[in-house]
Design a protein around this nucleic acid. Sequence first.
DNA 1: CTAGTGCACTGGTCTGACCAGTAGGCTACG
DNA 2: CGTAGCCTACTGGTCAGACCAGTGCACTAG
Lengths: 257, 257
Amino acid sequence: MGGPRFEPVRAVRAYERVVEQVEEAIESGVLVPGGRLPSERELMTQFSVSRSTVREALRVLQARGLVRSRPGDPHGAEVLPFSPAALHKSMTTLARVAELSLGELVQFRMVLDASAVLLAARLRTEEQLAEMYAAVAAMRAAAEADDAGGGTSEEAFGAADMAFHDAIARAGGNKLVQICTDVVRSIVVKLIADRIAGEPDRGSLMRRSIRHHEEVIAAVRAGDGPLAARLSRKAMYDYYAGYVEESERSALRALLE
Amino acid sequence: MGGPRFEPVRAVRAYERVVEQVEEAIESGVLVPGGRLPSERELMTQFSVSRSTVREALRVLQARGLVRSRPGDPHGAEVLPFSPAALHKSMTTLARVAELSLGELVQFRMVLDASAVLLAARLRTEEQLAEMYAAVAAMRAAAEADDAGGGTSEEAFGAADMAFHDAIARAGGNKLVQICTDVVRSIVVKLIADRIAGEPDRGSLMRRSIRHHEEVIAAVRAGDGPLAARLSRKAMYDYYAGYVEESERSALRALLE
DNA sequence: CTAGTGCACTGGTCTGACCAGTAGGCTACG
DNA sequence: CGTAGCCTACTGGTCAGACCAGTGCACTAG
């Protein structure tokens, strides 16, 4: 101990410094969504680096979802409004590389959705409640179309289901919960889309899901958060348990009290 | 309707196809962590593209946390084991660009931590319980060092706290919950590190936090998940409420029942 | 006033070059 | 024979300059 503790000076690549500066400009608000970066050739003179370096930096920024560039665009790369696309990408990679099981993903959704619904029961506006009702109505319409042999009805059902959960999440008022819910939902749906489409008894699954959603809405309307949360977990479990490995279901049931 | 619905063929850049192929190789297990990619010059012949294109692809893969390259390394870029670094990065960006408030972040932690602790109460092993005890002991040691005027004690306290929550999350058995908890925790800590360090009555805050943690452990040991979850939320609230905007605290309290 | 055309400039890609740094083989010394 | 130190063949990082297809805008012809 004692004496100055020097840190190793890691070599910072030129393109990294370019990334840093642009990132800083975006986060500090100097560059606003919809705004434009100078052209690559302009950037290379401003940063005193070559175009390859500028381009590598732009690739990184693009991978992080901060900018987008189109060939031929005379205005330069566009600064994007925030989108969870990058989060989505890294979570998808996570799901594959870290070998996340369907059970873990569903469990995560149970947790987040239940909290969102708990919060929604207290914070929702009348308008958001109406959206939830509308979403359930759309689900019912899709289910009926399915009974009649409609082709793309499970797609419509899924979209309505998403609208419902999105309304809940927005009503809950936590953007992070909302975004994570959405990201994980899309991953889960993608994982089992084919299995759902081939489900023999799809109709009864849909009907049961609709009933569950209605119960959740009723609890939200009544302002009973804990009940709504319980119902929400139950609904999620019932809908997805069939697709989850038997060995993982007990961990899911642990959330049902 | 009717007739084939053609999709617009979006122009796929060369470097994107390189990224896709390498990503595919990693996710399918052809390339394992610790393994090496061919050198850039080798890759450019394999993919029949120029080195610039190869390098842009590598930058993207690096930004996604899949590979790392060192100058002079004769073995080529290294395939990395999974790390939540990319997730961390995109969530940090999210927090800044999407203007996530401290309140939302803390609320998110309350939700995730409570679920982790709920699951841990059922699934924890004796070994993991011991780790939790050890972490609390370390917290106490740090708090005592702080009373004695130790310099880096709040750092040690934070590290022990992290170890505690990490043990809980691992015991809960959901990797996604564990990772998200960890990522958000580090963001929160970074946001208020300076405020915590300057806290006048840090000692009592630490002591109260330790007591809370002990209560949580007791409930986990007893297998009472719901109680442990409640205590965990309470502990988190007590610790962070002071740093959260007054207007947001009610949303946090909504989680306390 | 509008429809069409041309041009200036963009991003995407390629080629070829140089540099600093690394690893591992080779050599010379003990 | 063993080892310390050098040497070389490579690596990734960066640069310069070139070409192409595509875009938006100004200009022009109707």
